[in-house]
Nucleic acid binder design. Structure first.
Lengths: 139, 139
DNA sequence: TATTGTTATACTCTATAACTATA
DNA sequence: TATAGTTATAGAGTATAACAATA
């Protein structure tokens, strides 16, 4: 399949799955991007606002409100950068970590049920596609 | 890999690729979801507003504005349903079809470039993953 | 009464531009 | 002068509730 055709099919599929996932909100107050940002804080080295925003592929002003919301819920803590007074270092709190694992499981349940209905081969294909998708989201 | 873990990895990857694609807007005025809706009109049998909305996984009121915009640009036409006066049948115009193919190619170029950098095996995995992703977006 | 499309309204997430504090 | 974080503001896309027209 030519790359352009593959890109088009992928994009259409991603839009659809994205919409589907967006509808699948549990009863909790956190949206997909809040959880994703929380996860980014765990992953990013020296998580300043700019770095967290870059990891989530958004501009810093977009991340400000997300972090403020997470902070107001007690899931994120902030402290001054030890050497550069302009920067702020963010970290996930204990309750944030606990909530993250619980909520992830609840949020993934519907998708997991659909995945359960796949054949072993299809699941394998999906599993091998994920790191490729991640690479397509880089740069 | 357990389904829940797979679901979680997939969700994170989808959020990231989705954001990346959203940034890749050409110089034209149509967004991803406008193109997707236009494509849905081509695909759906007897495309009424409710059916197009369902195909795009949004509620009817959300699709109204999308179709109005596409109509104002001359890409979509509407006509009364022959037997049920409550319904409206939408169709893509000639200029809509032409724009769709041109724009799709332009929009896919950046993603296609990244796909070109993949190995043949990775591309194959991606290609086989797409119909699986489509199935995950169904009901 | 029920259904289709629509309008009114509000919420979420995003961006750009401009501000402040520090380097 | 340049950079990190923030605030102000606006735009896109989504949903729910309420409405008109038709079945």
């Amino acid at each position: 399949m030519p790359s352009l055709v593959l890109a088009d099919s992928l994009r259409v599929a991603m839009v659809r799955v994205g919409r589907r996932m967006r509808r699948e909100r549990g009863d909790e107050s956190l949206s997909l991007h809040h959880l994703s940002a929380l996860g980014a804080i765990q992953m990013v080295e020296e998580p300043t606002l700019a770095r967290i925003a870059a990891a989530e592929c958004v501009k810093p002003p977009s991340m400000v409100k997300t972090l403020q919301h997470l902070e107001s819920l007690g899931y994120v803590e902030r402290r001054d950068h030890p050497s550069d007074g302009r920067m702020v270092l963010f970290s996930i709190s204990d309750s944030g970590e606990q909530m993250l694992s619980e909520t992830r499981e609840r949020r993934n349940r519907a998708l997991a049920e659909l995945i359960d209905a796949l054949t072993a081969e299809e699941r394998d294909t999906l599993e091998r596609a994920i790191p490729i998708l991640e690479r397509l989201s880089e740069r």
